[in-house]
Design a protein around this nucleic acid. Sequence first.
RNA 1: GCUGGCGUAGUCCAACGGCAGAGACAACUCCCCUAAGAGGAGUUCAGUGCGGGUUCGAAUCCCGCCGCCAGCACCA
Length: 808
Amino acid sequence: MAVAKQRIEKYEPASIEAKWQEEWVRSGLHDTPDDSDRPNFYFLTMFPYPSGDIHVGHWYAFAPPDAAARFMRMRGHNVLFPMGFDAFGINAENAAIDRKIHPAVWTEKNMAHMREQFRRMGTAIDWRREVITCYPEYYRWNQWMFLKLYEKGLAYRGEAAVNWCPRDETVLANEQVINGHCERCDTLVVKRQMTQWFYKITNYADELLKFEGLDWPERVRVLQTNWIGRSEGAEIAFPVEGSSGEEIRFFTTRPDTIYGATFMVLAPEHPLVATITTSAKRAEVDRYVEHARNMAEIERTSAEREKTGVDTGAFARNVFTGERIPIYVADYVLSTYGTGAIMAVPGHDERDFAFAKKYALEIREVVSPDGAEHARLDEPYIGEGVMVRSGPFTGTRSEVGKQAVAEEARKRGVGKPSVIYRLRDWLISRQRYWGTPIPIVHCETDGAVPVPYDQLPVELPRDVEITGRGGSPLARVASFVNTTCPKCGKPARRDTDTMDTFVDSSWYMYRYVDPKIDTAFMNKTVGRKWLPVQQYTGGVEHAILHLLYMRFMTKALRDLGELPFDEPVIRFRYQGTIVFKGRKMSKSRGNVQTPDDYVRRYGADTLRLFMMFMGPWVDGADWNASGIEGVHRFLWRVWELGLTEPGPASARDGDVDGAVHRTIKKVTADLGDYHFNTAVAAMMELANTLQHASGTSRSEGVATLILLLAPFAPHITEELWRRRGGAGSIHQQRWPVYDEAVAAPREVTIVVQVDGKVRDRIPMPAGLPDAEVQRKALASPRVQATLDGMKPAKVIVVADRIVSIVTK
RNA sequence: GCUGGCGUAGUCCAACGGCAGAGACAACUCCCCUAAGAGGAGUUCAGUGCGGGUUCGAAUCCCGCCGCCAGCACCA
């Protein structure tokens, strides 16, 4: 029986939302104490880069986690849900170049705008703990960590081939290289040898492969595992014929194919190229090496390109076959992987096969799938098999041969089993202004000298001309560059590079616990109460870089004695990406979809709810607001339900009570799993049910619905809570609990199938014994008619669901 | 090219191996007739990309193909 329509006040989100947002700030509702009688729970969401263009993707990233954090609060936890800004970065410099605004001014303006957006979103953030990475109080600890890592040998200066944009005259981060082109000016990026600072993340390669005890999505674990790229094999050396003891060291994952190594290949950058090349071949080799060096990285590493190379004229000796084998230079061998040299086994490697075909080199079968020797190979055989033409190893399974050959190499003193990684050390230097200055002074006498701890922070000078040209802007600031050597006191120059901004975000979660502390990067007393982070959320695009760096930094700090745990984050969940008409949103594309119009028209609660309703959060979505009406109407229905007198108290309605308890169960489970869309659907379903209910069951059901909805739509629920006479804030109430006995449906419809076809649907009390269900099903006249005297061969009863009768 | 993920009404999406539909958009029909929001009630709409297999029973598990998306892309 529906309740008669009453005259109720209009639902006006604009005024309700503004009112409560102010009130929550005034009453400090979201300020989280470090100590309470509730268990602490650290819920972290990746902080944003203050880019200035707020789009619906930001809401997607922040509104659902906010709901999840609020849920944890209602479930009785003391939840730390902080926010801050990843405030250093290249965009601020670009703004300075394009619009003549100082990066600091531009960043401040954007942060102010975004704080306002977060407020309008209705987030339950404890802003007292805000962390901003571009402030000296923050980045001094980047410098402190740098010095600590340096002392420990985990930060070092070395030469590397980096991405260089010839037009902007600066190195670029990998993520600033789009398809081999500079993100800013679209110039083709080249590799350039430069001396840079690195963090020794490779020390932790094996540990970073371990995820024990972590609740992280499979996809992220796989991405990180592939990125680290562990390969087992052997490192072996072949001597160069006729040389003064020179040898070529190489790594192989297939030592079992060593008898098939009919030539060797060096990367063009390999140091031995210069020494072993015969005079007859010198000119040709030099030309090839020079050409390779000038080639763009993207072109050079393209797998589609035809293999090229030149003969050095030199020979190595395959110590296993005893044969002389030619040494080539080819750019399909990378100087940056392994030792920059390979034994080429054309019979069992596609690349070597292609190369051998082109240069008419010998292709020999040494692993046979069937154990028989074959005269010729039309294509390389990559798989495992039986070793053939392999001297004493002939007849050995290749899987076994790998280890056996590696051991044999060790015995002969020419090699050993070995493991290598694709992961490289983390290049942290940037020839940019808007970042953390590297706390190093270069002295003619003493070399690279660390800035003493008591001189930190090395502050970023404010007055800098930013042109985007001519390398590090800091190098042109005499007052910054010129200093004295901390060791000898003589005039010296500061390092003018700044740190990769991923350094900033590699430890920020430790700053939130007490961002004001100025004696350490982290307040350890407070940190002990919160860390490690219980729940982290963010975009899957950070699956490798940020999340890997963060794990590395935690392990490094642990080894410095600064942290008592191994991993920064116990549970990680990611959201998918919001695109617009199939394309990523960006200012340059001009397709940024802003939330402002929707907030104005429907309110923040509607937009929050819509973000969660669009589909599974992990999937992301193509932005299309056409469904927003539906959630808005739902909030209207809740509003009406909340403010309508339910009519006279009446006997309980067991069906309504059951629906209420089932909804509690469903929403609780779905919210815990980040299945926001189905949780919202369940609440819509309950609202539909309650509209047709009355009396006590209805009014209690409405009260429950409002509580369940509170994390999703914090403003309307707060308003309804108070109007309905609730004490305090709804957001401080306890999450509803369900009673399984009430939630269980009392009556179920049992479907009866005969040979797979539905023949009857019989209502029965839930929980009936199988035998009884079977008896009733067989007694059905329709079933009897279908059976027509036939005897069932088999009857399957699935409790409370189905009876399947098989006759044949 | 390799690896992974995904293909369900016109659309977005649900569905422990058990009646394909939870919720919503759109469309259509009717109602409400201002006091009010882009109101309410209802109807229509797919047999789950294609082909096999397993099973009493498959959207769900397995195999092959097609399409889309993402990641990696000469990693020795």
